[in-house]
Design a protein around this nucleic acid. Structure first.
Length: 805
RNA sequence: GGGCGGGUGGUGGAACUGGUAUACACGACGGACUUAAAAUCCGUUGCCUUUCGGCUUGCGGGUUCAAGUCCCGCCCCGCCCACCA
């Protein structure tokens, strides 16, 4: 017998499967299951991380298929975005050529995995047939007043030369290139995702998602309940509004702080302070966000203005400081140094009063942050913080000085980008009519493919007269197109709706096919999209639901997060560290099945791990051992029903374990159960005591159990066993509970909880405590008589514990 | 600072509702086969101890007949968020 030749076998089955259309999506699913992975960016080469996402996802799809599910398992490319544009600038190529080349290369690579992807359903977001509908969705938002243009402070990446959404700024740095993000005052396009904040928050409860992802979204949405309070500014008609969640500390307000960008700064600053204040504002404006964060020391200047504390009627000074953020709340705060760390630090530095109004702690060395009983608060003294919050809000409300308010950290989604390679925003700017939607019949607004980049990567769209100069759709007058393109996260916020029928031309998605397949039953991908793609997709789905276009308002019912796959040195794979593993090297030598199996065997799927080439050998050996076991020489001349029964019991236990573990994505233990069984069956087979019938049941069952984990190997074995129909069309084996019952049970004997001995008993007797105790006493014999036994505990089916003094 | 995970042999990791800790795999060591090596196969492998035996799930307490698992207090690591009022 030859050894298993993965290269030959995998190439052979890829051809046969394709020809037989084995993985074609059923047209009319009875019991549907939409099994989806997050589509990749076509960067040019497939990464081991992609495999770690795709391979186990495909195993789950195969597993479900064998359970009778009709599967939709599509694949595609998120093909707009900066790398293509940068490659085009650098190499003088066309962006779309670069993309198509990469898609070709990656498709070849990904096909080797042998996943059940239906290649008739491939889509790419940079295809005009696709982005036509991204534009169409934009227009629906625009018409519903959920897309709008506004001038304001935005995050600007000086390296990528574009604005970024808040979600794309990580610790003050550009998510993509790591450059320090600057603040600019620009007119940009936004989607009103904040209108959906409550629903995005509440509906998380209904989703079967990992806890940590839900928590991340909750934190990102950042709902808080408090009140808006109006402070009268001394000598002005304007009020200074602040947002607070601690109205119970109102009597402790000893100063106010407003952000340098606050519009009232100019109004209230007194002439004797204007020089200082202006200088401070200029300095703050020059700082990047990250500079501001790194300046541990708080700084600020007094504006010269005072407001009146409505509780104490005292005048409190207004300071200007950049520790107050313009983007959250009202851009101004009431400072309570006794009970807020930041205010405490500021007050200490500038010698401002610290007045304690909550008991149960002191404010000698630091702020007292806990809630408690009020003090120094007039008629509200001795109320608890909770009671006081309600009462003080009510009291101020009666005077027209406060309203309860819910505040979110989530901001509207900034979707315009000053880049070329993206979906054009379908808007025409007319000097008379303003921003006008491109009529639906004129979609798509085609992105010109012939590009000449200007100096410094200036977008070709800006210098493209044919694209730029158009007639206003409303008045016919001279107008120009919007030259910004959309954030690529808009492209990916709805792609899963198009997969069921990506060739549909009458709308973004085929309503019939969507009804058949959506929502996504199982979505598998990395945690890096927790507040990006996953939040945006939920928002777009809810919007389309509200528009009556969808019958569900959550796109992904069940989310599975894989962990991160690291290099052999335990670090994140990185070209500069030289620890990048190219899956092709291993696939070529050992086969796709071996790589797939190792990735799943390595450890818990949600924890990831590092690629260890040595350990990888183990799964490769296992594949060879399976081949040898099933197809190696077999003979039987001494059949033994007892041995056969034992084999049968082991087999059914293995079915149970593999089934349950795979269902709950514990692939590593499922595979270890398979290994254990193969280790057990190997020597047994050579014993020659198994009938051919029994052995055939074993081998066919094992081939089926292996099918989702090693699809090529299982198919090859299946054929060698004489079957003509694919193993992947077989039904998953069922275990027989009666066969799993053992006749004998091992009972452990403990003395004071420590293992001393064990004995074997008939299973039906193992549940009788007296019998267990008697057997244990007999077994221990004299050893017990020397001890003073004060208590005996018998646990049915488990153990007997003698407690001695 | 906040949130969420973790801490088990030389290594990756098993252990169901408290009930035989270290499954499975890697590595290491010994052996078989071979002129030799690779591959393969067999055996040993938590630690201490010559034996008897004792000890062991980050540390310290507690509950229990029995704790990796439950409770209290600490230490350490990873990820995410972070001047959010």
């Amino acid at each position: 017998m030859n050894r298993y030749d993965s290269t030959k076998s995998e190439a052979k089955w890829l051809k046969i499967w394709q020809k037989a259309e084995l993985y074609k999506t059923p047209d009319k699913p009875n019991s549907k299951l939409y099994n989806l992975v997050m589509f990749p960016y076509p960067s040019g080469n497939l990464h081991l991380g992609h495999w770690y996402n795709f391979a186990p996802a495909d195993t789950l799809a195969r597993f479900s298929r064998m359970h009778g599910k009709d599967i939709l398992e599509p694949f595609g490319f998120d093909s707009f975005g900066l790398p293509a544009e940068n490659a085009a600038i650098k190499r003088g190529l066309m962006a779309d050529e670069w993309i198509d080349q990469n898609i070709g290369d990656m498709t070849q690579q990904i096909q080797k995995l042998g996943a059940m992807y239906d290649w008739d359903k491939v889509l790419k977001t940079s295809d005009p047939k696709y982005y036509k509908w991204t534009q169409w969705i934009f227009l629906q938002l625009f018409n519903a007043d959920k897309a709008y243009q506004q001038k304001g402070l935005v995050n600007w990446c000086p390296n990528d030369k574009t604005v970024l959404a808040n979600e794309q700024v990580i610790k003050g740095e550009c998510d993509r290139c790591g450059a320090k993000v600057e603040r600019k005052n620009l007119e940009q396009w936004y989607f009103r995702i904040t209108d959906y904040a409550d629903r995005l928050l509440d509906d998380l409860n209904s989703l079967q998602w990992p806890k940590r992802i839900k928590e991340m979204q909750r934190n990102w949405i950042g709902r808080s309940e408090g009140a808006l309070v109006n402070f009268a500014i001394d000598g002005h008609s304007d009020k200074l509004d602040v947002y607070t969640t601690r109205l119970d500390t109102l009597f402790g307000v000893t100063f106010m702080v407003i952000a340098p960008e606050h519009p009232l700064v100019d109004v209230i600053t007194t002439s004797d302070h204007s020089v200082e204040v202006n200088k401070y504002i200029t300095d703050a404006g020059a700082k990047t966000d990250i500079d501001r964060m790194e300046a541990h020391d708080k700084s600020g200047v007094f504006s010269g203005a005072y407001v009146v504390n409505p509780a104490t009627h005292e005048q409190v000074p207004v300071w200007v400081s950049d520790y107050v953020l313009m983007g959250y709340g009202t851009g101004a705060i009431m400072a309570v140094p006794a009970h807020d760390e930041r205010d405490y630090e500021f007050a200490t530095k500038y010698g401002l009063e610290i007045r304690q109004v909550i008991g149960g702690g002191d404010t000698q060395d630091s702020a007292h942050l806990l809630t408690g009983e009020l003090m120094n608060s007039g008629e509200f003294n001795s109320l608890t913080s909770e009671q006081a919050k309600t009462k003080i809000t009510k009291w101020l409300k009666l005077q027209g000085l406060a309203q309860p308010r819910v505040q979110y950290r989530l901001r509207d989604w900034l979707i315009s980008r000053q880049r070329y390679w993206g979906t054009p925003i379908p808007i025409i700017h007319c000097k008379d009519c303003g921003a006008v939607a491109v009529p639906e019949k004129d979609l798509p607004v085609i992105l010109p493919l012939k590009q000449e980049f200007g100096k410094d990567g200036r977008s070709p769209l800006l210098d493209h007269p044919d694209f730029n100069n158009v007639a206003c759709p409303k008045c016919g007058g001279d107008a120009h197109r919007e030259t910004d393109t959309m954030d690529t996260f808009v492209d990916s916020s709805w792609y899963f709706l198009r997969y069921p029928n990506p060739h549909y031309t009458d709308g973004p998605f085929d309503p019939v096919a969507v009804k058949q397949w959506l929502p996504v039953d199982r979505y598998i991908g990395g945690a890096e999209h927790a507040v990006l793609h996953l939040l945006y997709s939920r928002f777009i789905t809810k919007f389309l639901f509200d528009q009556g276009r969808l019958e569900f308002n959550e796109p992904f019912i069940n989310l599975i997060n894989q962990g991160m796959i690291l290099g052999p040195d335990g670090n994140k794979m990185n070209k500069s560290k030289g620890n990048v593993i190219n899956p092709d090297d291993y696939v070529g030598q050992y086969g796709a099945d071996a790589v797939r199996l190792y990735l799943m065997f390595m450890g818990p799927y949600d924890e990831g791990g590092h690629w260890d080439p040595k350990r990888f050998e183990g799964t490769h050996r296992f594949i060879n051992r399976v081949w040898e076991l099933i197809l190696g020489p077999y003979q039987s001349d001494n059949e033994d029903p007892i041995i056969e029964a034992e084999l049968s019991a082991r087999l059914h236990k293995t079915i149970k374990k593999v089934t349950e573990d795979t269902q709950s994505t514990r692939f590593n233990t499922a595979i270890s159960a398979l290994m254990k069984f193969v280790n057990y069956a190997g020597p047994l087979k050579l014993d020659a005591r198994l009938s051919l019938a029994q052995w055939q049941i074993t081998t066919t069952t094992l081939a089926k159990l292996l099918a989702p984990f090693t699809p090529f190997l299982a198919e090859e074995i299946w054929e060698q066993l004489g079957n003509s129909q694919s193993v992947h069309l077989q039904t998953w084996p069922q275990y027989d509970p009666s066969l799993i019952q053992d006749d004998l049970t091992t009972i452990v004997i403990q003395i004071n909880g420590k293992l001393k001995a064990e004995f074997v008993i008939n299973t039906q007797d193992a549940h009788s405590k007296p019998k267990l105790e008697a057997m244990a006493r007999e077994q221990m014999g004299e050893k017990l008589s020397s001890l003073e036994i004060v208590k005996t505990i018998a646990v049915p089916g488990k153990l007997v514990n003698f407690v001695s003094r």
